[in-house]
Design a binder for these strands. Structure first.
Lengths: 338, 338
DNA sequence: CCGCGACACTGAATCGTTTCAAAGCCATGT
DNA sequence: ACATGGCTTTGAAACGATTCAGTGTCGCGG
């Protein structure tokens, strides 16, 4: 019952603890017969390495801390999966934390990760606060911003050009003949929201008779989308927009639910709708949803890549800013009017 | 740069390391003035506890290991969230692993959790193998089966009555006039699948002119559902079933996509469709999906509860088997024929 | 004035692994 | 016969927090 240690294994195999450790970590340095004997002892005793002791000695854990804005959002689980896959190659584990767009929860996770002496941190930050992240750097914990562009040369970052994405979305709405556009998204503290809105504004600015209104939401969730959709549905038909650009697909699905409910407003005939992220469920929506696709798994993959490289070259690492380009995916929800 | 330890804090505060530790863990035993001095030193040095050292001393970590069948399935993320919330109350962290219905990946996570000396394990197992789980028990790691019923008194378990759920689903299809029913689900190694199928069989058995066919899938995913749906769509109209019961909502959404594509088959007029889990996206589907609701967050919550109680009472803990009842949610996809 | 308990604090031992300087062993070449 | 170098193995030190038996101090009652 009492857990067995290398000492027990060494005793049983008739070698020293150093040799047991070598068998485990540098088998090339140990003679075949000894290796066999040690393995037999490990087997017999059911020995399992104590990770805490390894970490203590090593000074840092072989985990990567990751904080995302919303684990219920398939976009982020896809990013996390990409990160995990790449991390597994390096024998690293990903600890996934969910900030729920809440700075306090974000901080709680960062505290935890500091105590754990994680190998590095991947974060999709809630606000602009870099104070907290600087502290990680000073501790020597490499930190990569995920899904957030930055010029800050103290961090690496992996993001998608959200301004371009916003532009793509609204350009497409304009190209299919819509002019009165509403942007649904929020809170403003999220860079994803403001960037996509900025791109939308640019596109609208290019067309003289187009207008852009904003309905701000408290979060990027289906529920918030439904509330925004209800506000639109309850407008006089003449006051309604002819297109909605939602800051992500969850919002878009909420908007869609509200508009379709009771057959009140037809999508895309009366109002066209486009989302962002192209999550798997977008194509299975009541009206299949047009969206802006981001290479989600690749984002996670690349982020771990940068992290690992930074961790390997302690000082003088040149931080990189990787920016992917988004892609328009057209489905029924923005079909051209008849 | 070199991380500061309790020793440094002690030195700076002019006390012993033992006192620093007491300030951190049993402030009641330390005089107010000393507490203040120690806190000042901690602040000044930016001291952060080293979790690895704590764990080494404590003998186990304050993390709970959790393995689910599919992180992309909102049902499991909901369960995980419930678990995390309850765990946070106990100052425990949840490490979430994804087996992808693959026994090797499941084992890899269990190995990891053993090395980490986790506080306990929550698992939604891939197969019937209890061998691996027994090993955890022998190590003194309490283990709770999640979303899996069992009579095994060596484990606690938290589950939903899947046989009752399967019965509910098919009883509803029969009640709305359907007779030729197809069950879509697999692999058979998942108890969730076989239990739901068993319930379905019972319901069909109660109606003399009803039939039940099975299309087995390789996994419970949207993609697999789409493949099954295509097989149904490609049947001669006279050979088609008049209702489909999918083993979970992801499958159901895939089936729905395949049937609706090209307007080939109308749901629910030609084929009624019911899923399982009632994930958030089910109500936003092309045709809002009827489903069987499970109290997902409550499952996670309860599981952590049992785990914590077992961990607190090392021996002689009486394992409990909690079984929740599922609930039918009727939407458009099973509307009665006109 | 002594003894006793309460309280605050100390510091060495401990957890289990890894590392590394040093030692042991053996064969080869001179 | 001995030095040399290449393997293999050894064992003590180190990582950093916690614990606990023990030291010291103070105040109060007898």
């Amino acid at each position: 019952m009492a857990s067995t240690s290398v000492r027990d294994v060494a005793l049983r195999a008739g070698v020293s603890v150093g040799t047991v450790s070598n068998v485990l970590n540098r088998p090339g340095k140990v003679s075949p017969s000894t290796i066999e004997r040690v393995h037999a002892a490990i087997e017999a005793l059911g020995f399992v390495r104590n990770d805490a002791a390894r970490q203590l000695r090593a000074g840092r854990s072989h985990s990567i801390g990751m904080v995302v804005l919303d684990v219920s959002n398939p976009f982020f689980t896809d990013v996390a999966r990409g990160a995990e896959d790449r991390a597994a190659d390096e024998h690293l584990t990903v600890l996934l934390g969910n900030s729920d767009e809440n700075a306090d929860r974000e901080n709680a996770y960062l505290d935890l990760f500091e105590e754990q002496r994680v190998h590095g941190v991947l974060i999709s930050p809630v606000g602009d606060e870099t104070v907290r992240l600087e502290r990680l750097l000073r501790r020597g914990i490499p930190t990569v911003l995920v899904d957030r562009q930055t010029d800050d040369d103290r961090f690496s970052s992996v993001a998608v050009d959200d301004v371009a994405g916003g532009y793509l979305a609204v350009r497409h709405l304009l190209d299919t003949g819509r002019r009165r556009i509403v942007f649904v998204g929020g809170p403003e503290s999220l860079a994803q929201v403001t960037d996509r809105l900025a791109g939308a504004r640019t596109a609208v600015g290019e067309t003289s008779d187009a207008t852009l209104d904003v309905i701000e939401t408290d979060a990027l969730t289906v529920l918030q989308g439904r509330m925004a959709g209800e506000r639109i549905r309850d407008l006089e038909p003449s006051d309604r927009p002819d297109a909605v650009f939602a800051a992500n697909d969850l919002l878009a699905m909420g908007v869609l639910q509200a508009l379709s409910m009771l057959g009140a407003v037809h999508v895309p005939e009366e109002i066209a709708l486009i989302g962002y992220d192209d999550i798997d469920f977008a194509s299975a929506a009541i009206v299949p949803l047009s969206s802006i696709r981001q290479p989600s798994a690749l984002i996670g993959h690349t982020a771990v890549d940068l992290l690992v490289r930074e961790a390997a070259s302690p000082d003088g690492f040149v931080h990189e800013h990787v920016v992917f380009q988004p892609e328009l995916v057209v489905r029924a929800s923005t079909a051209r009017r008849p």
